[in-house]
Amino acid sequence: MLSPDLVGRTFKGADTTTVSAEAISKFAAVVGENNLAVAPPTFAISITLDQSQKLLQDSGLDWTRVVHGDQKFEIKRPIIAGDKLVCSSTIESARVMAGNEIVTVRSDLHSGAELIVSTWSTLVVRA
C-alpha cells in the first residue's frame, strides 16, 4: 500500500538517458516506422517505465501486482537521437476502488530546463 504522504511528491532521477539512434530505430522497426529523424510518439515510455520504477521503488507501490490502466503523452517536441533526458516522477493521485489501489504516476522528461515529454500512467494495483 502506498503511503498517503507520498502523493504529490516528485522524485527527480539522478540518471541521464542519452537517446541513441539505435534505440529509436529499434522502437521504430517494431511499429513499421521508416522515419528515423524523430522518435515515434510513444517512445518516451522506453525511458519512463524503467526510470519511474526506480524513482518510486521505495514508495510501497507493488510493481509485481500492477496492471496498466491507461496512458497519456503530451509531447512538447519529438525526442531525437542525442537528447540527454532526465526523468522526474510524481504520484499525482492514489485511491482505492473495489479493493484495488488506483495510482496515477506522472513522469516528465527534461533536457536541461526544457520539458520534452510528459507521460501519465494509471496503474491498477491488484488486491
Partner: peptide, 20 residues
C-alpha cells in the same frame, strides 16, 4: 501511434492517450 504518425508525420503528434 504509428497510425497517428501516418496522418501528418511522427513529429506532428502532440498528444496521445488511451485506456487498456
Amino acid at each position: 501511434g504509428k497510425y497517428l504518425s501516418e496522418i501528418n508525420g511522427s513529429e506532428a503528434v502532440t498528444e496521445f492517450s488511451a485506456r487498456f
